[in-house]
């Protein structure tokens, strides 16, 4: 599929890059064309070799010269951080390559995520019930962040907070605290367990050693790992006293 797109792209781009192409030696040109054909996806060195059918040292030489001429650039591909990927200089790496808005240089931007989570939590705490639009407008109106974030990003943050059980997703009933939202609107509000200092509710199984035990499947009454010789219980009792 990518091939058909790339050929049409090549055709489209050809007039402007013709002069450049002319100044390159054959091998450089072949390598450059393959890289460029991948547009904002970039390409792995090995694949360049495979697609151009050139020997490795030739490809490497071409890459070097193209880099020197600033016609291509090296990019980090989120899926394979160890492998060198190249992209024509005029393209910006696509979401698939960078990992999307949450990634900087191939790493998950945890700081940004946490800052946004904190902000959302504050807003929900003060407004009780919110929608994605509501949070987005609030952030925009009060210019809380120094960076732009999209509605999509807010939605993703709220969703992850739901998964963390910090907030819950509810459909507006149009009654009581939902009166300002049309019935059926997706709303978010604080989960009763969290935020009140209670923390997450720990179930009965998870509160005893066997429930947390990584070796439960090997534990038998008269085996090497057994309840009567269990160290986890000893430690647990020490804490309980």
């Amino acid at each position: 599929m990518s091939r058909s797109i790339s050929t049409s792209a090549l055709k489209r781009k050809r007039p402007e890059s013709n002069s450049l192409n002319d100044s390159l030696v054959d091998a450089d040109r072949a390598v450059f064309n393959v890289i460029k054909s991948k547009e904002d996806m970039g390409i792995w060195t090995r694949d360049i070799k495979w697609e151009t059918s050139l020997p490795e040292n030739v490809v490497n030489k071409s890459l070097k010269s193209l880099l020197n001429k600033k016609l291509i650039k090296e990019v980090v591909n989120i899926k394979n951080k160890g492998r060198k990927h190249y992209m024509a200089a005029e393209f910006e790496p696509s979401k698939e390559v960078t990992g999307g808005a949450w990634y900087v240089e191939g790493n998950l931007d945890k700081e940004l995520i946490n800052v946004l989570k904190g902000l959302c939590l504050k807003i929900i705490n003060s407004q009780k019930v919110v929608t994605v639009d509501g949070v987005y407008d609030f952030l925009k109106k009060h210019k809380v962040t120094t960076f732009d974030c999209t509605k999509q990003q807010i939605a993703e943050i709220l969703n992850s907070m739901v998964l963390d059980n910090e907030i819950i997703e509810v459909k507006s009933t149009g009654l009581g605290e939902y009166h300002s939202f049309p019935i059926g609107t997706i709303c978010y509000r604080i989960a009763s367990g969290a935020g009140l200092g209670k923390g997450l509710k720990i179930g009965a199984m998870a509160s005893i050693p066997c429930g947390m035990c990584p070796r439960i499947s090997q534990c038998t009454p008269d085996g090497i790992i057994s309840p009567s010789t269990c160290m986890y219980y000893k430690k647990w009792l020490d804490i309980e006293f």
């Binding site: 992850s160 998964l163 963390d164 059980n165 997450l200 509710k201 720990i202 179930g203 009965a204 199984m205 998870a206 429930g211 947390m212 035990c213 990584p214």
Partner: peptide, 20 residues
Amino acid sequence: EEVESIVLKRYGREAYRMFR
């Protein structure tokens, strides 16, 4: 809730989120 809290305790926060 019961199963999720086992996942949380045994495998940690990120596992909990993915599991949920």
